[in-house]
Design a protein around this nucleic acid. Structure first.
Lengths: 224, 224
DNA sequence: CAAAAATAATAGCAATACTATCATAAATTA
DNA sequence: TAATTTATGATAGTATTGCTATTATTTTTG
């Protein structure tokens, strides 16, 4: 169904589009694996180059530095979520059902999809959860924002906020709630994994299922 | 009222307690200023030492590295919030009022308090907002958690979750909501400053007042 | 006033975050 | 198919970072 998908990203994020070459796709694939396995601080272009049998200089021809690579990956993820939500929402008219689908998509976006062989979405999702903030909590956030590096996330928030208003036109904070739906979704998974006393999701067998239920519970009450 | 307050922190966070010496207090004071002004990535012990007219080696006698210093500052902040909430909750019995006070304290914790001259709480709050995640989104999060480095935050979440249950004993996710109350409070301020399209707080004159109102609005609906 | 403790001054080292140059391989195009 | 452009590899180099070590000088405390 989604075979051959290519996520189009802001050109300012890269020097050469990595999705268009063999080396580029290896850079994407193995940076995801290394960042997940050892963390973003540990990760360097030198180590990545060693891993894929290339050189530091070659990686630098694709990305200015590792911050841009992280921005690229995080953007890729949110564009992917947006793509999933868009195709799932086709022909759906009931606002409440739309919201349920958005929540389901958010949660299932973390499942690997074979359509893009060089991106393991489930690992990328782990990176977005544990390193995602580092992409926008920097001194360059305002500059990055001007360049449109957060467009995917912002457009998704806009889409969802409209659905929230359809469910309850009187709700006062649709944007805040939309952005918080995303943050909550990721934070709660992080907490359940690492700081279990901070969430009820920890005591559960199927975290994804429980998260979906929790998000629906919160939305129901907030929009009632 | 709070003159002479000394926040007691986990001893594993430092090599020598910085609050107990002149140099230590300068380290705290100026690290807060420098991290706020230039960001945590830019910040180094060498630059801090230059700023306070000391040496790199001397700073290293207080903290193992800058990650520990950040953990110290973030912990200090949450202990501070807990202190504020504790004193404000004395003699209050009505659960709904308690919750309102918690929210007010969360928001006003960001006001500078002259009781601790070497900590500018309003700047420290900015750091917690923009760099706080970096303190716990690391590969060492599980180890740090074992050492009790997140105790302040977790105990606060526990306190608040109990209040949430008092307001509505049937609420299913008191811990998730408590932790999210904190996250939301900080995220929304960050968004209003840097990604204004993601929140309604941006179009407002007094962000703190609007945030307090927003949080109360969310809690009211969730616990109704 | 002596002893202990804290700080300063200085040096050094391996790793990081790049940049530059030149050679070679692969892909395009004439 | 040869010529040419383009991508990659190999190698080297540099300033900064993140430390550790040593010794000298203050400051504190008993």
């Amino acid at each position: 169904m989604s075979v051959g998908v290519k996520i189009i990203l802001n050109e300012g994020l890269f020097l050469r589009e990595p999705q268009d070459s063999k080396l580029g796709r290896r850079i994407i694939k193995y940076s995801i694996h290394l960042i997940d396995a050892y963390g973003f601080e540990w990760f360097t272009f030198k180590k990545l180059a060693a891993e894929i049998g290339s050189t530091e200089a070659s990686v630098y021809r694709y990305f200015e530095n590792k911050h841009f690579l992280l921005l690229y990956l995080v953007n890729w993820y949110w564009e992917w979520v947006r793509y999933l939500i868009d195709i799932q929402l086709i022909n759906v008219v009931d606002p409440k059902l739309k919201l349920k689908i958005v929540i389901k998509s958010l949660v299932t976006a973390s499942k690997d999809n074979p359509g893009v062989p060089y991106v393991d979405e489930s690992i990328l999702h782990k990176i977005v959860i544990s390193e995602g903030w580092k992409a926008y909590h920097t001194k360059s956030v305002d500059e990055d924002n001007t360049k449109g590096f957060f467009k995917a996330y912002k457009e998704l928030a806009s889409t969802v906020s409209k659905i929230l208003l359809e469910v309850n036109p009187g709700f006062r904070y649709p944007f805040a709630l939309a952005s918080h739906l995303f943050e909550m979704s990721n934070d709660q998974i992080f907490f359940s994994r690492h700081l279990p006393r901070l969430t009820e999701l920890s005591e559960v067998n199927n975290v994804e299922e429980a998260l979906e239920e929790m998000l629906n519970y919160f939305m129901d009450r907030l929009l009632k």
